[in-house]
Structure formats: structure tokens, C-alpha cells
Design a protein around this nucleic acid. Structure first.
Lengths: 337, 337
DNA sequence: AGTCGTTGTCGAAGCGCTTCGACAAAGTAT
DNA sequence: ATACTTTGTCGAAGCGCTTCGACAACGACT
């Protein structure tokens, strides 16, 4: 391993000078800078991360806590994670991957050991047990997702309330009166993951304003589960003509089953997805959808974090505005509907 | 921040004693050990990662390099990543997430800076540009995937050759003679990702032995792409009755299109998927499949790495045996076929 | 009783870096 | 020319830990 001292000797300067060349924290004459940089090149020097962390008290690492469970939105999680990693690198940070498994202990460990300078938490529950720890430490953090109480926290998320409202508005505009929501798996609601409930709230309150009726059913992915759910929906509300699907793995089964039952999309029934664009585009009927801006979320989270680390002020809560893309799965309610 | 010295003072011992309690590298009397542990508890001490790394010359971090592109098998990648993180934690290591973006530079950076003690590389290409670097350093590494030349490297992967052969055998046994392979997107073959080619090789050579005919077509995911591909297949080989699909996002479109064309699965046509079990189970026809053991791969990679770090010998190449699970999408060729 | 391991503890050195204060050398204002 | 600032460099201290050698204290052998 090449050390700072060796570079210094090779360049004929002191160690501190090399350090200042690297950090730019003091001015260095052109000649010296060039000689040092040359030596760094020639010797193939890389600063030792541990020594740097020890001396400067910063690790240049941000921790990213991803959910352990993979019961939902895996591609979204992955996309966020990759966006976080990519953006972080652009700001000179590396990313430490933590799974939710360790829970609050991971927060304590990382905070206490100085392993990371800051944290990003995904899959935040409404009343997440990690939050008190974050509030009680001076380690900067950003949540991707929205807990019930955001005081003292910085959050980035899609505005799921507005997303729900947007879906209703689109369906209402097309003349639909009875709407069914195919939701995430029951487990997602049971652990009070915010986004699912917020979507529902936004959707319901806008529906009330516009005079639509809403029936919500959580649903596991796959054909069998969806077949059962769909049967119950049409049983209870035979006049249902609009669907909002917030569950990637229910999209295709829903389209298939509707087709099978002789209900044409979009002539008889309209379907809106809340899902990444890729899913919407690849479906058997190109899906009208509200996109989940995974990359944007990851990027914004890192930017907020970097701002905090640089001592700049940041938004408390940054909600991204939803955008609805009309494709082939929604249309005006026909007269016979 | 609580330091070792403070713990030592609180417990009435020297710093080195506390260190030895923590590491267990020298024997400590019961009484002392207990007093120290008590102090650690009371003060809420966490060893400083940077100082530890500097003094011991090991970071207890392994780097995981995931592909930046998300054009294939995203859930598999995610599952591997999570398995790596979970297993690594069990061995006391944290995981640093690197994207393929930086390419070989990331290897140099991590190796040179002592940021990580070891690396795991995913999405290895047959002639990967990162390999010379790995061979030229004494930093332990494990590849998930198989390059063309494995000398001096440790690799973990599913035995895709055997996987291809297994698919052919199953179809042959059922009486099928003409087989079509729906492959990954052309880009995957173009960058010479090993697994796709190896599947094909294994499949073709076994087919030759058994006297089956094989037609291979790369294919993007989604309905439109698959519709075109399928048309060409039946055009060229109208008698095709067996399908092997190595592309998650082609499974559902294939099943839908076959249904639409009046070809019953499995009565007229048999379909085998090479995909995670979850995909196979959630498909509209429960899919006979060879599973991609993502978790197992991640776990094994970490275990190999830890073995190397502990100075134990490891396998050069660990190929996991494929397992075929018969479900509802394959059956004997009917007399009329 | 004297010698020899053991066992448990300590002090000190050192890992490679950052950063502070000191200080020549050079430039600027008087 | 003198005093004063600015610029560029250096030496030394110190970040918190691990680890080596030293060495009391103690029981186990002759």
C-alpha cells in the first residue's frame, strides 16, 4: 500500500502539503501541486479510507436501509437503490447496504460506530420504531416514504394522496361512477405502510367530492387471489366500471380475467395502474397509469442528505407531484355501461 | 462519542484490556470481563469503525458490485443482493453497494483505499474487463456468474449448461421433438453475459444427443416483441410444441398469446420457464420451471468470501445443480400434435 | 524452597491521515 | 526602506483503536 508519506517523499514535500493538495483546503502553488499530482499518479496512490475517517471524523459513506421483505414493488426498490448509489457517487459518497432485518439496532450500530455519515431509510411505516432513534441523534437522515409524524424529519415521497385523487378524477371525467381499488397485499396494510393508506385516503376523499363510490380490496398478487377478489367485487358492486390497481403483480391477472369474463378494456371497463412506467407499457393492454418515480425519489433523497451534510437547510417534506399518463386502458363509459 | 479509553476508565482497567475483551484474542478473567461488559452497556459504547479499520487493517466490509442496467432479472438481482447483505451480517460484515457504472475504476478505488476487505461481482461478462484487476490484486473476490476463463478466480453460479440440458430432457421425455427457446433481449447476448450462452450450449448439445430440433430466438420483454417473435417461430417451425423461456417478462405474454391462438397449455404445447419460483407460481398457468436460486447464490458467494478471508481454501467454481419442478405447463405430446 | 510455566493485565508504539499553529518568503502599502 | 499582510509550506499533535512485549502473580513441579 502506498501512503501519503511516500507520496510526499517522492514529490519532495511534506505530508501535510500532499494532504492539502488532495483536499484543496489551503492554497498550493502551481508547481508544487503538479509535482504532487504527478507523484500520486506514478505511485498509484489511494488515500486509506480508515485513516481518513479517523482523522477527519467523516466516512464519506451513507447507509441505505432497504426492506428485507420482498412482498412488493421489488423493481421499484431496486431502482431507488441504484439511483441512490449512482447519485451518492456523484457527490463523492459510497453507499452501505443495510437490510431492514436488524431493525433499530442497525441505526444504533451505524450511528454509534461512525461507519456512515448519514442514513436513508426506505419502506417507512406510519409509526416506525426507528424514528425515535433518528430524532435522538444528530446524524442526518432522509426517509423515502412518509411516517405519521414527520416533525424533525426529512422525507421524500411520491404524493400518494394526490395520486389517488388523480386516478379518481380521471375516471370521473370519463363518466365512471363505481370504482374498485385493487390494493396491496393485506400484510402491507397491516404493518401500516404509509403509501397504501395515503393513496386510499386521497382517492376516497376526492371520490366523495365528486360523488363516486369506492370499494377497496387488498389483494395478494397472482391469478388465484385476484380471481377471488374480483368475484367478490362484482358480487358486491355489479356496476363497477373503473379499476385502480396498486399492486404490480395484480395488473396482468386483472386484465386477463376481465378479458376472460368478456369485459372489454377500455370499452366496458377502465383500468388505471399505480406502477412504474415499464410495467404499464409491458402489460397486455397498454396501461393508463400514474408512474412511481423511483429514480427521482432516490436522487432527491441523496440530494437532501448531501444538503444536510453540507449544513444547508432542507425541506422537511418533499412530495413529488404525480403524473398520469393516458394509455389504452381507460376510456369513456359507454352508454350501455 | 464514547471511546475505548472512557470505557476502560469507567471499568477501572486499561484500554488494551477492553480491546481484548472485545476481540477475545487474549484470555481475560471472569471478573474483569464482566466489569468491562457492564461498562460498555452503561456507556452505550460502539467501537469506531475508522479507528478499527486503521489499526487492524481490515474494514469488515465487503463490496457488492451490482449491474447498473436493469434490463433483466431485476428481482433476481435484488434477491441476491439481499441474501448477500443478510449473510454478510451474520458473519460480521457490512456490505458496500457499488454499481457497475464505475466499472474497473470502482475495483481500483475500493482495493486501493482499503474501503472493503473483499468484493463480490455480479453480472459478469464472459470477458469482463474487471477480471485482470482482480487477478492482479491480493484482495479476495467472488464472482456470481461465470466468465470464459475462471483461472485464479472463485465463482458461484447456477449450472446453466445443466439447466438447458434438463429442460430438453424433460420435453424429450414427454415426446416433444421441436423446441423453441425464447431468450433474453438481444443486448444480453451482445455483451456476452455468460449464463445466456451457457444455457443455450447445454440445451443444444443435449438436444443433439436426443435428436430434438432447437430454434433459438432472443426477445425483448412485453407483448408486442413476443408476438413478433412467436409468429416467426411458428412460421419457421410450425411443428414446434415445446418452449423454453429464459426471460421473465416474456412468460406471461407467451402464455396469453398461445391461449389466444387456440393452442392449449399443456395439451398442445408445453412451456418450461427458467425463472424464480415466484414467477412460475404466479403465472396464469402454473409454470413448470427450473428455479434460479438467487438466495442460495448470494449466500454461497458470501460463504466463499468469508472462507477466503479466514485463509481457508475454497472451491474455484461452485456450480449449483438445477432443479426442475413440474407444474401445470408441461405434459405429454398428444397424438394429434 | 526454588524454579518454571501459565494466566491476566498493562504501557507504549503505531496504523495513515487531517488540521492547527508557526513561519519563511514574497508582495503591498506607507 | 520599514512595517504589515498574504501566500505557501512545514512540523507536530492527535483521531481511537489493535497489538506486541513486559511483567506481576500464582500455582505446579522438582
Amino acid at each position: 500500500m502506498v501512503t501519503l508519506a511516500e507520496v510526499a517523499q517522492h514529490a519532495g514535500v511534506s505530508a501535510s502539503t500532499v494532504s492539502y493538495v488532495l483536499s484543496g483546503k489551503r492554497s498550493i502553488s502551481m508547481g508544487t501541486r503538479q509535482r504532487v499530482e504527478q507523484s500520486i499518479q506514478e505511485l498509484g496512490y489511494h488515500p486509506n479510507a480508515g485513516a481518513r475517517a479517523l482523522a477527519s471524523n467523516k466516512s464519506n459513506i451513507v447507509a441505505l436501509m432497504v426492506p428485507l421483505r420482498t412482498d412488493m414493488y421489488v423493481p421499484v426498490m431496486m431502482e431507488i437503490a441504484i439511483a441512490v448509489a449512482t447519485t451518492a457517487r456523484a457527490y463523492g459518497y459510497d453507499v452501505l447496504l443495510l437490510t431492514g432485518e436488524e431493525g433499530p439496532d442497525a441505526v444504533r450500530r451505524v450511528t454509534g460506530s461512525g461507519l456512515a455519515d448519514a442514513m436513508i431509510l426506505m419502506d417507512v411505516e406510519l409509526d416506525d420504531e426507528r424514528l425515535p432513534l433518528l430524532r435522538g441523534t444528530d446524524q442526518p437522515s432522509v426517509l423515502i416514504g412518509l411516517p405519521a409524524d414527520t416533525s424533525g424529519l426529512t422525507c421524500v415521497d411520491l404524493d400518494f394522496g394526490a395520486t389517488g385523487a388523480l386516478c379518481v378524477e380521471h375516471l370521473a371525467m370519463l363518466g365512471h361512477r363505481d370504482i374498485a381499488v385493487i390494493g396491496e397485499a393485506p400484510a402491507v396494510y397491516e404493518r401500516h405502510t404509509g403509501f397504501a393508506e395515503r393513496t386510499l385516503d386521497g382517492l376516497r376523499s376526492r371520490a366523495r367530492e365528486l360523488g363516486l363510490r369506492v370499494l377497496h380490496r387488498p389483494c395478494e398478487g397472482g391469478y388465484d387471489a385476484l380471481a377471488a377478489t374480483l368475484a367478490r367485487i362484482f358480487d358486491e358492486r355489479p356496476g363497477t366500471t373503473g379499476f385502480v390497481v396498486q399492486n404490480e403483480s395484480a395488473v396482468e391477472p386483472l386484465l386477463a380475467l376481465l378479458r376472460q369474463q368478456g369485459r372489454a378494456v377500455p370499452e366496458d371497463v377502465s383500468v388505471i395502474g399505480i406502477c412504474p412506467d415499464q410495467v404499464a407499457v409491458q402489460a397486455s393492454v397498454r396501461l393508463t397509469s400514474v408512474a412511481i418515480p423511483a429514480q427521482e425519489m432516490g436522487r432527491r433523497a441523496v440530494e437532501q442528505l448531501v444538503a444536510k451534510l453540507d449544513g444547508r437547510d432542507t425541506d422537511e417534506v418533499a412530495l413529488l407531484a404525480p403524473e398520469l399518463t393516458v394509455r389504452a386502458s381507460t376510456g369513456p363509459l359507454s352508454a350501455t355501461g
